[in-house]
Amino acid sequence: MKQEIELRINGQTYEVEAQPWRTLLEVLRDQLNLTGTKQSCGEGHCGACTVIVDGQAVNSCLMLAFEAQGKDILTIEGLSEGGQLHPIQEAFVTHGAVQCGFCSPGMIIAAKAFLDQNPDPSEAEIRKAISGHLCRCTGYVQIIEAIRAAAEKMGTR
């Protein structure tokens, strides 16, 4: 039943054998041990499992691993470079945007996809961009502030 697939994740190629019904999230977490991407609701309502596929933020629990073949996948593990946090990650740390941290990887990845398309967003645009992501700890405000600060920093780089 298992079939071989090839996935390009964070610039590296992985060959895995998976059943055709496995989601990208299952393959990332259970087969490749890329557990930075979190599973919460498993139904596409919370955003915790968000990864970037060909530049688009997607819920990896709603995408079959097979569908992701031949595409560029970015997970939270691929965001920092050479031990340096990405400016979005850094801003999440310094702005108190992380409490329990379970939503953080998905939220940060969503922010990355969003800022790549909208380098200078308004607060209202940021709110909308993360509206598919649940966070029960923070009340979202410090997350929005972190994304705004990251945008400014990335803009001046």
Partner: peptide, 11 residues
Amino acid sequence: PKKDARIKVTG
């Protein structure tokens, strides 16, 4: 900043 924030933002 929260001490565990760095390991949480990297997954």
